[in-house]
Design a protein around this nucleic acid. Structure first.
Length: 446
RNA sequence: GACCCCAUCGUCUAGUCUGGCCUAGGACACAGGGUUUUCAUCCCUGCAACAGGGGUUCGAAUCCCCUUGGGGUCGCCA
């Protein structure tokens, strides 16, 4: 574990006090990309020294999310809670050399141990920000062991990063002010100081740091809403990092190939899910149909109360019509609802625009009659029949197609009308035309 | 408040290190047009930015300073 043959070693070190959120996911991604790009080693370390708030469930959730994103690691997970003796050893070393002292405050079973921060200037040459200077005569001495017997973040972090041979610490900007506290600790312990790369934060639309207040921020929430991991990863990679050219849609391999710490921007970025949705739709459209179906079926069944028979040919037919129209997998219920529910409601605007026009009742009745005569009810035969109908009656195609669409679906958008008819079948198509005639009549219009 | 970080279209960004090729490029969103029976996809076009002020320089989005604005940190949390 202490080897360091010049190879890149990085770590992702979440604290298990909640879900993996978007910001953490991006930090993990940047670490992972950097490791993979440089044939380095990725380590997962669980920073669970806060015994009050850390939970095993959160550890599991975080790991699940990392797996879902497609991020793996070569060593770990290591748990800081299991390494207490190691930290204590190093704290003792500091005590022995008079670089730390016991607190005289009595708070718990143990006495806290406090590190003497040398009053000197500290310069950090950050990979992203360049030189940053701090005056440590301005800060207080640092608690490294709490009275509950566990080390504090800054101490455990330094000891672990050193022992695990971490070469590059890629972490959030919010850790910048920890850096001048950690560097003297490396020095006091006789450890080499690693390189730092402080990644700017992700902000919400209000330019405030992204938090629960901004709605869904956990990776799991995005998974549930029907985002594809490839899309989220691609989007996250481009938030605060750029390959330096105009590429947008990039696979994991593309990202690895192009990744450089220098490409990380030095300013914060706002999380805008419009672009993420666009990207997601893009990835969904690229999916082989079988894969799309596999991914979307759970959402469809959820929306339809489990009533969908996945082996039904019509379901396949409908889903094929919907793939290019799906931006979020969770959209599928709304997209296809009218196919599976005969009692669908009519959209008010659609009614006004397409149904409440003079002669529509008669028109729909005539169309029903025309379709009635068709034996082999297909996209082609229905289209042919309606084209003939249009010609015979000297009206425009739209005059027939638009009201019919609303009669069959209740809405003005969707797949081609003849595909809709075919998916519904002759019986339902005609029944819906009749239902719509009745509906218009209840509105008191003729 | 103190300390630190940051500042290009509404948003993500290229360009900044190594001043001139930038009348600032791409993408999302938006608007218009083409294709389609509608929607989505696809294609075309448009809209839209160097925060402000001083320098340095023949020349600054690019370098320096100030102002303003935004963010972060100031825990025996991580």
């Amino acid at each position: 574990m202490q080897v360091n043959d010049g190879k890149v070693r990085v770590r992702f070190a979440p604290s298990p006090t909640g879900y993996l959120h978007i910001g953490g996911a991006r930090t993990a991604l940047f670490n992972w990309l950097f490791a993979r790009k440089n044939n380095g080693t990725m380590i997962l370390r669980i920073e669970d020294t806060d015994r009050e708030r850390s939970t095993m469930e959160d550890v599991d959730r975080i790991i699940e999310s990392l797996h879902w994103l497609g991020l793996n690691w070569d060593e770990g997970p290591f748990f800081q809670s299991e390494r207490k003796d190691i930290y204590r050893q190093y704290a003792q070393k500091l005590l022995d050399h008079d670089l730390a002292y016991y607190s005289d405050e009595e708070r718990g079973e143990h006495k806290a141990i406090i590190f003497k921060i040398p009053h000197e200037k500290v310069v950090v040459d950050d990979c992203i920000h360049g030189k940053m200077e701090f005056d440590n005569s301005l800060i207080k001495d640092l608690v490294i062991f709490k009275s509950d017997g566990f080390p504090t973040y800054n101490f455990a972090c330094v000891v672990d990063d050193a022992l695990m041979g971490i070469t590059h610490i890629i972490r959030g900007d919010d850790h910048i002010s920890n850096t001048p506290k950690q560097i003297p600790l490396y020095d006091a312990l006789g450890f080499p100081v690693p390189k730092f790369a402080h990644v700017p934060l992700i902000l919400g639309k209000d330019k405030k740091r992204l938090s629960k207040r901004h709605g869904a921020t956990s990776v799991q929430a995005y998974e549930q809403e029907g985002y594809l991991p490839q899309a989220l990863v691609n989007f996250l990679a481009l938030l605060g990092w750029s390959p330096g050219d105009d590429r947008e849609i990039m696979s994991l391999d593309d990202l690895i190939g192009a990744f450089k710490l220098e490409g990380i921007s030095s300013s914060n970025s706002v999380f805008d899910d419009e672009k993420l949705k666009w990207m997601n739709g893009n990835y969904i459209a690229q999916l082989p149909f079988e894969k799309y179906k596999e991914q979307v079926m759970p959402y469809l069944n959820c929306a339809m109360n489990g009533s969908i028979n996945a082996s039904c040919e019509t379901v396949d037919y409908i889903l094929r019509l919907m793939q290019s129209r799906t931006r979020l997998l969770s959209d599928i219920g709304e997209l296809t609802g009218y196919f599976f529910n005969d009692e669908f409601e009519y959209d008010a605007k659609a009614v006004e625009k397409r149904l409440l026009k003079p002669g529509v009742i008669e028109l729909l009745q005539n169309i029903a009659q025309t379709l009635e005569k068709i034996e082999d009810f297909t996209e082609h035969s229905t289209e042919q029949a309606l084209r003939d109908f249009v010609e015979k009656n000297q009206i425009s195609g739209g005059a027939v197609i638009h009201p019919t669409r609303v009669a069959l679906t209740g809405v003005m958008t969707g797949p081609g009308l003849f595909e809709i008819m075919f998916a519904l079948g002759k019986e339902k198509t005609i029944a819906r035309l009749k239902r719509t005639v009745d509906f218009i009549q209840t509105l008191g219009v003729s």
